[in-house]
């Protein structure tokens, strides 16, 4: 356990110094900018439903998974690419600890950025109609999305250290963005559906809940998100144990 803190700290430093962070920051600025445009064009309308729709149509299917993808593939894939992984794996630490530390660091950075972006988006888009429950629901769903997508993309960096980003972008756009949006059946196999479930859970009995419909119960969604995290960690640990470093 004591070995996880230095690895997580190293990873946070690496991620926050990476050029990828600039790309992520630009991506995550888009919702706030759109919210601002909405505010200005709506000439003082007080409707926080717009921010929910922005989340459901842009952040959840595209920006959130892309953020997690960019950070998570870099966390381990970057070490493979930079040939620094032996400094972690040739040490007396269980591989699970390396994976757990990398996961925690990536999810932490991802969540910090996404949550700030969502809070700013909501603050800008819902001025005058501020609703704590709506903001809470957005933050809960943002957190769930960060945890789940980081778990999905962390192993990708080990399987495809160089091509992981491209493969991930294709997956996000085609599967999470398009396929899961047009078919309920396909959506069952997407992460997006379960993050939507957590959003619905957060909204509870709010009148805005109808803007983010979900056929899943909140508990089921949280359970599946937890399952995705465990599965991602297991796959990643297996890969790290069995992979060779030529």
């Amino acid at each position: 356990m004591d070995s996880m803190i230095p690895i997580a700290s190293l990873t946070v430093r690496a991620l926050t110094r990476s050029r990828r962070l600039i790309v992520v920051a630009l991506l995550l600025a888009v919702p706030a900018l759109l919210a601002l445009v909405f505010r200005l064009s709506a000439s003082g309308a007080t409707d926080d439903g717009f921010t929910l729709q922005l989340f459901d149509l842009l952040v959840l299917p595209l920006l959130l998974p892309l953020t997690a993808l960019i950070l998570a593939t870099s966390a381990l894939g970057g070490e493979v690419d930079d040939k620094t992984l032996p400094y972690l794996t040739l040490k007396p630490i269980p591989r699970l600890n390396v994976v757990a530390a990398k996961y925690i660091a990536s999810a932490l950075v991802c969540a910090a950025l996404v949550e700030v972006a969502l809070a700013v988006m909501y603050a800008v888009g819902a001025v005058g109609a501020f609703e704590g429950q709506t903001l809470g629901a957005l933050l809960l769903a943002g957190l769930a999305g960060c945890l789940a997508y980081t778990a999905v993309f962390l192993p990708l960096g080990l399987f495809l250290p160089r091509q992981g980003l491209i493969v991930g972008i294709l997956y996000v756009v085609i599967w999470e963005g398009i396929a899961a949006g047009i078919s309920t059946g396909l959506a069952t196999l997407s992460v997006r559906r379960y993050v939507e479930g957590t959003l619905h859970l957060g909204l509870g009995t709010s009148p805005l809940a109808s803007l983010a419909p979900s056929s899943l119960s909140g508990a089921t969604s949280l359970l599946v998100v937890g399952g995705i995290v465990l599965l991602g960690a297991a796959v990643c640990t297996w890969r790290l144990r069995t992979m060779e470093m030529p």
């Binding site: 930079d82 040939k83 007396p92 630490i93």
Partner: peptide, 18 residues
């Protein structure tokens, strides 16, 4: 056998450092 690395020191060939 990660525990073994407590007794092994390795200077890898590759240049990579942080």
């Amino acid at each position: 056998n990660p525990a073994l690395y407590r007794q092994i020191g390795v200077v890898p060939e590759q240049e990579g450092l942080y």
